[in-house]
Simulated assay, not measured.
Amino acid sequence: MPKLSEDKKIERKKKILTAALNEFSEKGYSATSVDDIINNANISKGLIYTYFKSKEEIFLQLAEYWEEMTDQRTVLNFEFPKGFTLTEKLITVWDGIVDTWTLENLQFARIQFEFWFESSKIPQLKEIMKKKSNTSFQIIEKIIVEHSPSIDRNLLQAFVRLWWSQVDGLVIYYVSHSKLPDPKEMENIRRLIKKMCEILE
């Protein structure tokens, strides 16, 4: 049998992870079986165990790399025009996140909450999620500190935690209702978020 190229191995592994992402997003971690992933990927059972030892290992791999697979990581890469106020910077980030909310995107967002739920039972997953959460917090912290280097640390941490709770809470709501945000409602939410940001000016 000819030896598989490294590119082919990567392609097969990604196919398995994509199938798993679809199944976990649709059914959740506990209700998804290895057979479900095999059927979704249209591969043999022997092939899946060539790349992964267990369903948990697949889940952990997704926790590490799902943003790259769904282009989520690009959302928070911003360059701001010179002279932007802190509020303008923060609302630009807010808009960048909200503008990605399509039905497909929100479907995939379900798996992020699966990661958090299952992290209480899987210590390795808990560490992955804490690291990712800290990275997200640091993005907003950096924007604020660059604008206000002497900001009170307690206020900074409280604001950042509140900021991300608004994002995560809205995603949970729209995922659970399988719907996109109403544009008029989001205009009002954006106005409130902007007011919240102005507190730090």
Score class of each variant (00 low, 15 high):
Ser5Arg: 12
Glu6Arg: 15
Glu6Cys: 06
Lys9Glu: 15
Glu11Gly: 01
Arg12Asn: 13
Lys13Asp: 08
Lys14Trp: 03
Leu17Gly: 07
Thr18His: 09
Ala20Gly: 11
Asn22Gly: 04
Glu23Asn: 03
Ser25Asp: 00
Glu26Gln: 09
Lys27Thr: 05
Ser30Thr: 15
Val34Arg: 03
Ile37Cys: 05
Ile43Val: 02
Ser44Glu: 12
Lys45Val: 02
Leu47Ile: 13
Leu47His: 12
Lys53Thr: 13
Ser54Gln: 11
Lys55Met: 02
Glu56Leu: 10
Glu56Cys: 14
Leu60Glu: 08
Leu60Lys: 12
Glu64Phe: 12
Thr70Asp: 00
Gln72Phe: 11
Phe78Ala: 09
Phe84Tyr: 14
Ile91Leu: 07
Thr92Leu: 03
Val93Phe: 08
Val93Gly: 08
Asn105Gly: 06
Asn105His: 15
Ala109Phe: 10
Gln112Tyr: 15
Phe115Ile: 06
Phe117Val: 08
Ser120Tyr: 10
Lys126Leu: 13
Glu127Trp: 11
Met129Leu: 07
Lys130Met: 11
Thr135Gly: 11
Ser136His: 13
Phe137Thr: 06
Phe137Val: 08
Gln138Asp: 11
Glu141Gly: 04
Glu141Trp: 00
Ile143His: 04
Ile144Asn: 04
Val145Pro: 02
His147Glu: 14
His147Gln: 12
Pro149Gln: 09
Ser150Pro: 08
Asn154Val: 12
Leu156Ile: 06
Phe159Trp: 06
Phe159Pro: 00
Val160Gly: 00
Val160Asp: 02
Arg161Lys: 12
Asp168Ala: 10
Asp168Trp: 07
Asp168His: 07
Gly169Ile: 04
Gly169Lys: 02
Tyr173Ser: 04
His177Val: 01
His177Arg: 12
Asp182Ile: 00
Asp182Met: 01
Met186Ser: 00
Glu187Thr: 14
Ile193Gly: 01
Glu198Gly: 02
Glu201Phe: 10
